[in-house]
Amino acid sequence: MSQDALDTVVHAETPEGIAIELKAAGVSSRVFAYLLDFLIRMGVLYVAALITAVMGGLGTALMLILWFALEWFYPVAFELSRWGATPGKRTLGIKVVMDNGLPITPAASITRNLLRTADLLPALYGFGLLSMLLRRDFKRLGDVAANTLVVYQPKAAPKVTMEDVAPLAPVRPLPQAEQVAVIALAARASRLTASRLDELAGLAAWVSGDDGRSGPAVTRRVLGVAQWLLGKRA
C-alpha cells in the first residue's frame, strides 16, 4: 500500500501466513527510555553504595559485582521478564521483540546488550544513532545482529461508536476503495469537529446523490450510506 512508504510499520509474517503489523519505535522514545533506565541504575548504585560502605572488603566486592551486573545484565533481566521491556521502556510504552513479532529469546537479548559496546562508540551512542537513523526499522547495530526490534506496545483498538443514522443506499455501486473511504469517514465522525465533518462529507456527497452540496443534512445522508455499506438495512 502507498501509505506504507510514509509509515514505519514493519510487517512480520506468522507461520499461518498472516502479516502482523509492528510499529517500530523511533530515536526519541528510545533515548528517553535509556535516560530513565540510566537514572534508575544510578539510584540503585547510590543506595547500594550507602549500604555496602559499612561492610568493608566484602561490601566492595558486592558493590563492584552489582555495578557489573547493572551495567551488562540490567536490560537482559528486564527484557526477558514478561513485559519484554526495562522500566524506562515500559514508561515510554515501548518493548523489545524479535523481528518476527515473537517475544525476545535469551540469546537475542544477551547479544543485543553485549553489542551495546559497539553502539555507544565513538561517543554518546554515535554508531547506534547513525544506524537507527539510516534504517526504516530503527535498529541499532546490536538489534541488527540479534534480529530484534524495539516496537510500540500495541494500544487497545479504540472503540468505534457510530452515530445511529438511517441507512441509505448509494446512488450507484461503489468500488472497494470508495467503500473503504466512506466507512472510514463514518468511523472518524465522532472525533471530528462538526464543520470539518461537513466539509469532508461534502467531498463525498455524490455517493448519496447530493453532488456539490454540503451541510449537516448532507452529512447525515453520507453517514447513512456508510451504514448501508456496513450492512445495515432499514
Binding site: 568493608g56 572488603g57 566484602l58 566492595t60 566486592a61 558486592l62 558493590m63 563492584l64 559485582i65 555495578w67 557489573f68 551495567e71 551488562w72
Partner: peptide, 15 residues
C-alpha cells in the same frame, strides 16, 4: 581484601 579484588576482577575482566 581478596573479596574486594574478586569484585574488581569480575567487573574489569569480563568487561
Amino acid at each position: 581484601s581478596d573479596w574486594a579484588m574478586f569484585g574488581y576482577y569480575i567487573r574489569h575482566n569480563i568487561g
